[in-house]
């Protein structure tokens, strides 16, 4: 357990997230009220997903550069945990929609269904879903690794346009819509309250590290299982 400092860091940061996330003061806003604290949980799932998918993308490129089978295992498992985070982000978003957009803002179900960020996120998750289907449909290990690595690069290329660029261009109920008064809270640090940033950034790191930890466990299991075909 010598290299496990980041696992401890993840635990400490998440304890900090829960304690300070619930107890510290947050901006008092209409509609959002106390649900603004979901920023530390719901939004962090999406940030964690993006980071994990990015790691997976890097390992896919690494695989294609040297055709080392272990890089394919890394790419697969990081993508799997990333997709898990995405699904959790979607589920938590569904709960949040109910009390803010639908109940308090009076949005109809139709306008929620048309919300470009929801559609974009669904597209991104489905593209990654197809990645897992693709992987499962091969019997030849080398072919599976090569084709899915190429596909993973395509999936990553679609990720940011579908969850960030298109929703911001066409306008969405999420913060950061063009012409909105809330600026760009996800990317410009001046558009987020300083008190919230103090919890939000550590929360992203904490959740992401937990995801990385789970992914490494899956990777180590896969490596053990496929030990005979990995020449080390």
């Amino acid at each position: 357990m010598d290299k496990s400092w980041w696992k401890i860091l993840s635990f400490v940061l998440l304890v900090y997230t829960i304690v300070c996330g619930f107890l510290l003061d947050v901006p008092h806003l209409f509609i959002l009220n106390e649900t603004i604290r979901n920023l530390y949980f719901h939004v962090c799932m999406w940030f964690g997903m993006m980071i994990l998918f990015t790691i997976s993308f890097v390992y896919s490129i690494k695989y294609l550069r040297g055709y080392q089978y272990r890089n394919d295992i890394f790419a697969e498992n990081f993508a799997r945990v990333g997709a898990l985070f995405g699904i959790l982000g979607y589920l938590t978003g569904m709960l949040w929609v109910n009390v803010t957009w639908v109940t308090d803002q009076g949005q109809s179900m139709a306008s929620v269904m048309k919300e470009p960020k929801l559609i974009g996120a669904a597209i991104a998750l489905l593209i990654y879903g197809a990645y897992f289907v693709l992987r499962g449909s091969f019997t030849d290990i080398d072919k599976r690794a090569r084709i899915s690595a190429v596909y993973n690069i395509f999936a990553f290329a679609m990720l940011f346009p579908s969850i960030w660029i298109i929703p911001r261009l066409v306008g969405s109920l999420h913060p950061g819509a063009p012409g909105g008064d809330n600026g760009n809270p996800a990317l410009d640090r001046n558009d987020m309250d300083a008190r919230m940033r103090m919890v939000f950034y550590p929360a992203i790191i904490g959740w992401t590290l937990l995801g990385v930890w789970i992914a490494t466990l899956k990777i180590r299991l896969s490596l053990l299982k496929d030990k005979s075909i990995i020449n080390e």
Binding site: M1, I18, V19, F22, L210, W213, I214, L217, L221, L224
Partner: peptide, 27 residues
């Protein structure tokens, strides 16, 4: 509320930690 969430978090981490140790031993 904080205590409940912390209990869940600590439980989760203990679970992952034990899993980690098991895999280490197996390796």
């Amino acid at each position: 509320v904080v205590a409940v969430c912390l209990t869940i978090l600590i439980g989760l981490f203990i679970y992952v930690f034990i899993l980690d140790r098991k895999i280490s031993r197996f390796e």
